[in-house]
Every structure is written in C-alpha cells, then in structure tokens.
Amino acid sequence: MKNNWWKVLTVVLLLYTAVAGLLLPVPRLAILNETIRNLYFHVPMWFGMTIILTASVVYSIRYLRNPSERLDTLSHGFAQTGILMGIVGLATGSLWARYTWGTWWTNDPKLNGAAIAMLIYGAYLVLRSSFADEQQRARVSAIYNIFAFAAAMPLFFILPRLTDSLHPGAGGNPAFAKYDLDSNMRLVFYPAVLGWTLLGVWITQLSVRLTLLKQYIHEKQLA
C-alpha cells in the first residue's frame, strides 16, 4: 500500500476526469460545441505519450552507460506504452477532426508530423524484433530510441508551429491555453493529464514486471 498510493491516485483522477469532464460547464464555442470536452481525453494522450517516451529514452541512455537487462526491459516497456498512447491519440484526433473540420485526415503539418513520428517509433518495434542476440538487440534499439526521440519531438512540437496549421497549438495558433482553456477546464484538464499519464506508467509497470519475471524464470531453468 505504501508504494501503491499513486495507483489509488490514478483511479481517483480517471474517475474524476470521466465524471467532471462530462458534467462541468465548458465554454460555448461554435463548431467545437460539446466536443471541446475531448480536451480531457485526446490531449492527455499526447501529454502522457511525451512523458512516457521521455522515460523510455532516459532508460535507453542509462542502459548505454551501464548495460543491464532490467534497464533494457524498462526502456522497451515505456516505448511500447508511449506508442500505444500515440496511436490512440491519432485515432481520437482523427475522429474529432471528422466532426469539426469535416474530414478524417488532412495534410496538416501537425497531423502529418505526428503520423511520421509514430512511424519512426513503429520502426523501433520492428528493429527490436529483428535481432536474435539479446545484447545486440538491447544496444542497437537503445541507440535507435535516442534518435527516434530526437526526430519525433520536433515533428510533434516544433515543425508544426513554423507553418500554418488547423490544429490548435500549431502554426502560431496558441492552442486552448491562451483564451479557450478557462479556469473550469483547467480544473479537469490538469488532473486528466496526470491521471492518464499515471495509467500509462501503471500499465508499463505491469508489462515490465511480467517480462522481468519471465527472464528470471528462464535464467533459473537454465541454471
């Protein structure tokens, strides 16, 4: 219980996000209408993905400095969860675009940047699965992970701001933060970001523990 307080926090924050996110008053804006509430679900996917992929790259760097199976497993686990959140973010964004912009996909720098970044991360998983030797796999995928992070983050957050974009937070567009995100929305948005990110960490922790347990049993059997 002492080490699991953050899991309780996750449950509370997510249930709060679902209830308050749907019921609390939001600004009445044309076109967006009630879909403005997607802010509590679509945007935290990307915030959470960024935080989780950062954790993954930190473990990759630590692996390269001081190789161990545990660090490799952690880095891989965080990357997997980050990629999942990114895919969910793309899917929800596409759905949202259909009913506000009128199309599932458009050649917008923010959208295409995110799609390319997800492909770069997809290649990470392909790369990992193409090695037979475990140490080689761990080393090469750690290096690739660093490059993927360095390539993906500008695609998400810098390049779309340099040109025009439909998407809030890109093309000099100040996102919801400047005037749309009123104090009522902040009351849900920040807990939502924290809650969804913690859920990602939780899922990662389970998958990492399972992999480590498998490795442990495997080593015991060999010994």
């Binding site: 899991k7 996750t10 449950v11 997510l14 249930l15 679902a18 939780w202 899922i203 389970l206 523990r209 399972l210 347990l213």
Partner: peptide, 15 residues
C-alpha cells in the same frame, strides 16, 4: 472505466 481499472488492479495483485 471502473471495470477496466478493477481488472488492472486484479492483474497487478496476481502478478
């Protein structure tokens, strides 16, 4: 959401 979270908790405990 509660159902999914309960399942996640039970997986955690099993593990």
């Amino acid at each position: 959401l509660a159902g999914l979270l309960v399942y996640l908790i039970s997986l955690d405990r099993k593990l």
